[in-house]
Amino acid sequence: MKIVVADPIFLTEAYRRRLDHLGEVDVYDTYPADDAGFRDRIRDAEVVVVGRYGMRADAFAAAPHLRMVAVWQTGYDHVDLEAATRAGVVVSNVPAYAFEAVAEFVFAYALALLRRVHVADARLRGGGFDWREYCGRQLMGMTIGVIGTGDIGTRVVQIAHGFGMRVLSTTAHPSPERARRLGLEFVDLKTLLAESDILTLHVPLTPSTERMIGARELALMKPGAILINTSRGRVIDEGALVEALAARRLAGAGLDVFEHEPLPQESPLRQLDNVLLSPHIAFLTEESMDECTFTTIQNIEHFAAGRPENVVNPGVLERGAAPRLQQP
């Protein structure tokens, strides 16, 4: 079968050999210049591997032989699942990886913002060396609000306990047993916002979570709090966040994800000195990359054997879209 790795992913020689065993493989290590270029790359593919580049409806229409899209990450909001299902294309993702990487990154951001490391670095490079400018705050004794206690959120909770922090979370179905097991307090969102020194988001992008943190929620946050987002950019109303940061109602923010990626050059976030920005890299460690690629290739191997796994559009299976593909 024809497999196309359509944009950059972590792919060692060992993993490349596993793909070669399945059929003819084309690997692109650059992003396409535009959607037309992307469609050209996948035109003859039966299996497409995508990282960050999206698969819109027109991409499915341009690939008549396509049977599977293997998403090289957990999130798949950049793939048109309705178009995939209509076309009889199985879409699989990597549902469980990078827990440690993302959770640790949250605290890298928190510590850097609280101790003003980025400010100290910039001023020292400019010739300054006055220690009195950098009095920060410590994590011990602070309250962290964790929205989303799945695998990543749960690991954040565990690390927070190591720093001696109080942990709050919110859920539609609070469980006293789960609260005891995780060592946190389930509270309503208003209480969480009002009492958290650090707010960190770990929810998928869905209609119910899109812009769940807007102007109203930001106004309820504790003055001087820090917001960290490593989930999806559109979980926050970015315009409202810019206003809160510019007005110094929040002490700072650590943003690894944005409403529009790449972050536009004209974004006002680039001008704020109380924001740390990174290009969607919270997941990016050697260990997590290996884990992600392992599962992605395993998804393709299982699909080729007629046993698709980690399918995010299961309705397509009812249409018989999981044939056993011929292997060399």
Rank of each mutant, 00 (worst) to 15 (best):
L193M: 14
V146R: 03
D197E: 13
A215M: 02
W131T: 10
P176I: 06
H202M: 10
A215F: 02
V187N: 02
G214D: 13
M212D: 03
H161Q: 12
R211D: 08
L201D: 06
H202A: 04
T209V: 04
L182W: 15
P207Q: 03
E217R: 07
A179G: 02
L201N: 09
K222G: 03
L182K: 08
T171M: 09
P176Y: 07
D130K: 13
H161S: 07
M142A: 13
R181V: 08
D188G: 10
Q138I: 05
E195R: 15
L192Y: 08
P176T: 12
E177Q: 14
M142S: 14
P204H: 05
D197A: 07
V156H: 00
V203C: 14
G145H: 09
V187W: 01
D151N: 15
G150K: 12
G183S: 12
L168A: 04
R211E: 14
T170W: 04
P223D: 01
S169P: 04
R132A: 12
R166M: 01
V157T: 05
F129L: 11
G214T: 09
E217W: 04
A194E: 11
L192R: 04
M142H: 05
L184V: 15
E133N: 11
E177T: 11
R211Q: 14
P223E: 02
D151W: 01
P174N: 05
E210Y: 00
V157M: 01
Q158R: 15
L220C: 06
F163T: 13
R180K: 14
